[in-house]
């Protein structure tokens, strides 16, 4: 068990060292001549009027919530899929029931315009 993940842990450490050194290199190698104009927020050349972020569509939150629900369901497919050769008809029936429950929720979200991006 551990021996499966030890090489990966070692690789993660090495990958972190590489990326951190790239990040550090950009600080060490470049010139440094800061000025207020240069460090202002980019607004196509106009002086930015607000410092707070813009308002954005609440749809993005909805997408994130729907993703959470459906992705957890998608992940629960994985162990079932791996064991499908052994479960056969029993597994198939169980999964059909599961998908029916999933489909009801999916149809509800669709009906209420959860996948609709244009008013």
């Amino acid at each position: 068990m551990l021996s499966q993940y030890f090489p990966i842990a070692l690789y993660i450490a090495i990958a972190l060292v590489i990326t951190a050194s790239v990040l550090g290199a950009s600080r060490l190698l470049g010139p440094r001549k800061p000025s207020p104009q240069k460090q202002a927020t980019y607004e196509c050349g106009i002086v930015p009027e607000t410092t707070v972020g813009p308002r954005f569509s609440v749809k993005f939150y909805l997408v994130a919530m729907l993703f959470m629900i459906f992705d957890v369901e998608a992940v629960s497919f994985y162990p079932w899929a791996v064991l499908m050769h052994k479960l056969r008809l029993f597994g198939l029936m169980e999964m059909v029931l599961f998908v029916i429950v999933l489909a009801v929720g999916y149809a509800y979200v669709w009906k209420r315009g959860g996948f609709q991006w244009q008013e």
Binding site: R27, L29, G30, R32, K33, P36, Q39, A40, T41
Partner: peptide, 11 residues
């Protein structure tokens, strides 16, 4: 790219 100045916006 490596020799470019690092600019971090004040905001």
């Amino acid at each position: 790219l490596a020799l470019k100045e690092e600019i971090i916006p004040t905001a």
